[in-house]
Design a protein around this nucleic acid. Structure first.
Length: 245
DNA sequence: GCGACAG
DNA sequence: ATCTTGTCGC
């Protein structure tokens, strides 16, 4: 595998790790493939923004994933897909991707057309090893991805201004944990106020987009509610899919 | 040792 | 994530 200097999604799935140490090793191995020097799709581009999310039934060890494609201009739903699978990994903070991605990939593959941008529940670069769910999904699919989380995890931030669109830096103060570059105090994402007077969401870059673009798209996707319409639609659909199993 | 900890 | 009643508001 990986004899061409690129990633094979199928190979990664075939060698999915089963313990924490190997999962962290996978993150360290794939992190160099994250692309941070593309600006991403234009705001209001012609194409689809796809939201993905999963729901669990721990009793039966079942996970349901949903992928919902919205028209990037009108935010109208134009396609939906679901997939059901077995939980592939326990919940461990920092290793969420290994629990969710296999079934999410299955759902994404059932869409009629390839997404132009994918919005994930959780983090991208805002991650202990700079390789959260959104980055992982981006590297495996090659698609531009962003992470929109509902909580700041362990990262520090100042509350953004009260108005819609206000932002503040999400900073990693854990120190230079990664080999090499000094990352202490680095901005790993942003707190973004999507609705006036409402708790912000936490946006970070996944793959092939910059932080400004990730925030701009997130704000545009949340014209009425705190969470992006992509997330709301995917959350609703995966819950219905789980209930139907 | 203790608390914190995306979903 | 999931467990869960009522309640306030458009």
């Amino acid at each position: 595998m990986d004899t061409s200097g690129t990633i094979s999604c199928d190979d990664e799935l075939r060698h999915w790790p089963t313990d924490e140490a190997r999962a962290r090793a996978v993150q360290d191995r794939l992190r160099p493939y994250v692309c941070l020097d593309e600006s991403g799709p234009e705001l209001g581009f012609e194409g689809t923004v796809v939201g993905v999310d999963v729901a669990y039934d721990d009793e039966r060890d079942v996970v349901a994933a949903a992928a919902v494609a919205l028209d990037a201009r009108t935010l109208a739903v134009i396609d939906e897909a679901t997939a059901v699978g077995r939980v592939a990994f326990p919940y461990v903070p920092g290793l969420l991707a290994f629990r969710e991605i296999p079934t999410v990939l299955d759902a994404l593959g059932r869409l009629a057309r390839t997404p132009d941008l994918v919005v994930c529940d959780g983090y991208g670069r805002a991650h202990p090893r700079r390789f959260g769910l959104a980055s992982h999904l981006g590297v495996l699919t090659g698609l531009p991805t962003i992470g929109v989380a509902k909580n700041p995890f362990t990262f520090r931030y100042e509350p953004p201004g009260p108005d819609r669109g206000a932002t503040s830096s999400l900073v990693d103060d854990s120190g230079p944990a990664l080999s090499g570059a000094p990352t202490d105090g680095e901005e790993v994402g942003r707190a973004l106020r999507t609705q006036k007077g409402v708790k912000p969401v936490f946006v970070s870059v996944g793959h092939r987009i910059d932080l400004d673009g990730a925030c701009a798209h997130t704000l545009r996707l949340a014209p009425k509610y705190r969470l992006p319409e992509t997330t709301r639609a995917a959350d609703s659909l995966c819950r219905r899919a789980l209930a139907g199993v």
